[in-house]
Nucleic acid binder design. Structure first.
Lengths: 201, 201
DNA sequence: TATATATGTTACTGAATAGTAACATATTAT
DNA sequence: ATAATATGTTACTATTCAGTAACATATATA
């Protein structure tokens, strides 16, 4: 229930309204779950009726698809930046973890993380799985760079990438910006754990 | 669709049939999702009709509850063993990771991991969340023991426990016993990552 | 064997809700 | 101003599915 600004073109307003729908839907999906959230619920959150939603989305599932598009844009954007910076593989991975934690606490991204690969329509499901595979492959590549330049220890890059994503994505389901754990400390602890593990000196 | 053995008491048969229901339901929930799996689907998997299920379960949600009970028994059992073994905190944590990976690849446990805290009935939901909190607290305690005896480096035990569970629980959603990643290698890589992190020598 | 109880079936109901058709109003561009 | 299009509403349909009532059969035990 956020006001839409004035002095905008029709297309800008449209984009804003779609964004509000996605944010509200994401919040509801995270709190009550996808199937327990009706389109009427979502419509009510922005004081419109259900058929109005259909002017902005194709169907309920399309909300998940649009959240995914947004998420992929941001994650791939981060990876694009990281490939360009100079530094060894470890430094790139370090930057990725930092950036990803920042991204993964946004409602739309959280919604994507929780629902990716769970679309009912088979083609959408496959696309969603592929999207994640592509991103995982890019992180794996960073890990390989690190192994080659010696900044990351010899390990199975595939398993490492998966485990890393599991713990980072997990953050999206428990982290609350107003909760006990502060964002800075979280990032610091994650980086320390990923870097050095748990072993004492 | 597994046969129920003969020469058993009524109660044993009952337990076996309940177990089959839980296993089949778990498989279906993991493949198609909880809401896309109907009780008719589950009933069909063991060649009975839906009302028959109600002789073994209270309602659909009760399947999740029973999976959770089973999971808590096994996880707490593991923790009970680990507390007793002698060894420092790190060694206990190491054993826990090893044991947990073994547990978390069972269908019923996977189902629990994916659905915990998502019950519709509020009291069940709260209980489920509490169950996990209790287990997390026990792992946190192990971490504290390790920090005190110097075998685990100074860190935020709360965050570490959460991150650890996220990556371990994540395994439950992608690991397939017939897939590429072998169980031994997985355990080895997870232990190495948790122990030493990613940093090169 | 008789009887209680456990296990199962067929056939139904009641509620939720995604999606749509038909209609109404506001806004923009010509 | 006016036509075209964007944005919205009310009222409905069609489907899915959890849960139940009423009835039938198998099994164990007294």
């Amino acid at each position: 229930m956020q006001a839409v600004g004035k002095n905008k073109t029709r297309e800008e307003k449209r984009k804003e309204k779609l964004d509000i729908i996605l944010r509200n839907a994401s919040k509801a999906f995270m709190e009550k779950g996808y199937y327990k959230t009706s389109l009427d619920d979502i419509a009510q959150m922005q004081n419109v009726t259900k058929p109005t939603l259909y002017y902005y989305i194709k169907n309920k599932e399309d909300i998940l698809v649009k959240c995914e598009e947004e998420a992929c844009l941001r994650i791939n954007g981060l990876l694009d930046e990281i490939i360009l910076i100079n530094g060894n593989g470890f430094q790139k991975l370090y930057q990725f973890v930092q950036g990803y934690i920042n991204i993964v606490t946004d409602d739309i991204i959280r919604c994507h993380v929780r629902h990716r690969g769970q679309m009912e329509e088979e083609s959408l499901k496959l696309k969603s799985i592929q999207n994640h595979k592509d991103i995982e492959a890019r992180v794996r590549e960073i890990i390989r760079i690190g192994i080659e330049d010696g900044s990351i220890r010899e390990c199975n890059a595939t398993i490492l990438a998966i485990l890393l994503f599991d713990s980072l994505n997990g953050i999206s389901s428990w982290y609350k910006s107003d909760g006990q754990v502060k964002s800075d400390e979280l990032t610091e602890e994650v980086l320390a754990l990923v870097t050095h593990g748990v072993i004492g000196d």
